[in-house]
Each structure stands twice: as C-alpha cells, then as structure tokens.
C-alpha cells in the first residue's frame, strides 16, 4: 500500500513537471525572441513567422512532414511550410554576412533540439544554409 502511494505521488510529481514544461513552451516564456539567431531575417523589423510562433514551436515537425509529402510526391510548391523557407529566414549570420548552419551549436534549430534532447536527421540531406550561389 505504501508502495502504491509512493508511486502515485511520483506519478503526480512527474505529470506536474511535464505540465509545467509544456506550459512554459506554449506560453513562450522559455524561448522568447532571444532564441532567434543573430543576423537572421526573422529578426528583421516587421517580419513574422508563417504561423503562430507558439504553434510553430510545438507543431513545426508535423507541418513540415505534411508539406514535404505534398511537395515531393505531388509537385505542389504552393505549400506554406517548407524547410528551405525556415532556413532562409532563421539562419543566423556572422558579422561578415556569412550564414551559419542552423543546427550548429546554439543556432536556431539546435538551441531547442539540444534543450529537448531531440536528434533530427533533416540535415543529413538538406542544406543548412540559405542558397547563395
């Protein structure tokens, strides 16, 4: 019985922690504007994301997966969520103007993925910097 109570308490505590983390994520306090990479177009005045930033933080992977299939298999480029678009806007730049790969340490993609312990494989194949040639 005591064991059960202990497990129950641990479970509740675990749920609380997860809940708080989610609340922090959705309210945007954990990743404020500061997480945008210096030098990226996303920091330009008047620029806005293709979706609500809180929604994008949580669901960008679903949108990207959905739209990649439309783009590749149906040749539909009128999609709203493209990885190239993300990178174009969110790649940071050095003072010299050279773009920095988005999953370099501390950069836009890496900052969250490292924090949440996510290992993605987008950039095994996809370019991490905006096209400039």
């Amino acid at each position: 019985m005591a064991m059960c109570v202990a497990t129950g308490l641990r479970r509740i505590a675990g749920l609380l922690v997860v809940g708080m983390a989610l609340a922090a994520l959705t309210s945007g306090t954990a990743f404020a504007v500061g997480s945008l990479s210096p030098g990226s177009k996303a920091l330009a005045p008047g620029s806005s994301c293709v979706g609500d930033p809180n929604d994008m933080r949580r669901n960008h992977m679903r949108y990207l997966n959905h739209d990649r299939d439309r783009a590749v298999q149906r040749g539909n480029r009128s999609i709203n969520h493209s990885l190239v678009g993300c990178i174009d806007c969110h790649a940071g730049r050095e003072a010299s103007g050279t773009p920095i790969p988005v999953s370099d340490k501390g950069q836009f993609c890496a900052s969250c993925h490292t924090y949440t312990g996510i290992r993605i494989n987008c950039f095994q194949c996809h370019s991490q910097v905006p096209e400039e040639r």
Binding site: I87, C125, H126, S127, E131, R133
Partner: peptide
Amino acid sequence: QRSHAPRG
C-alpha cells in the same frame, strides 16, 4: 547541398 537538391 543545394537548397532545391537535397542529398544524403
């Protein structure tokens, strides 16, 4: 890679 030509 080029942006429009992913490769891995």
